[in-house]
Amino acid sequence: MAASTQPAPTAAPIHAPEPVVKLRNAALRFGDRLLWDGLDLDIAPGEFLAVLGPNGSGKTTMLRTLMGLQELSSGTVNVAGKPATRGSRLVGTIPQQRSFDDNTPLRARDLVALGIDGHKWGIRLKRKAMRKRVDELLELVGATAYAERPVGVLSGGEQQRLRAAQALADNPRLLLCDEPLLSLDLHHQQAVSSLIHRQACDHGAAVVFVTHEINPILQYVDRVLYLAGGRFHVGTPEEVMRSEVLSELYGSPIEVFESNGRIVVVGMPETVNHAHPHQGA
């Protein structure tokens, strides 16, 4: 695993505005496996937080907590001033890319529409208004060209643009991304990550971006939350992506180099020494 590029922004933003996410003394364990404990974290509007860590360190579980799908073992989690609840309209989600079956009877525009009102009962009645809304969103993410094509024939990158359109539909205050760039080519990685970044800087959304690979998003990242072996470290990329910090987190010697604006991590162990690794994040 390697991680990041370029001199990233300076210190953590000043928390003058009310934070979008407020984790207080948060702990999560499954049986005797501890994912994290004593986590205090505020994420400000417009802040881009990257969540890094090995498999099974609880990155995806962190997102599920913020979605209200996973309860904390102890501590509290607030989103926009209220306890996290499932299905909140203030939260948008971009999941991992997952291919659709070739014969799925949905076009690109239908998938986006489902992201907007798929949770409502019954059949869609205001079709015209929805069409207009979907057209705007497709335009926003640059997917107009394939609006009418079946989702099953779209490439991974094209599908992730539709995911972005779904997630941005409600102009969310908090945008949760679960490895959205996985298996995309470089061009689409840049397109999708810049869409996400735009939501943060233009609309003041807080972004929580789970990833294995920090380099493609390094230019946007304000802070990093690094989870490993039941422990964590929060700070700017310069503060966290250092040999001492990662060595301590993993409990084995790790070297971090900066090369050509990219962060290269050497000596990453297959497993983490402290917890029960590889249980799926």
Partner: peptide, 23 residues
């Protein structure tokens, strides 16, 4: 069927996003 139409389509084709939406 008509009552369940949209959420059922949603969870069938797009379970991850449907779950996040609270379906």
């Amino acid at each position: 069927l008509v009552a369940m139409w949209r959420p059922l389509t949603f969870i069938s084709v797009d379970p991850a996003v449907a779950a996040a939406r609270g379906v």
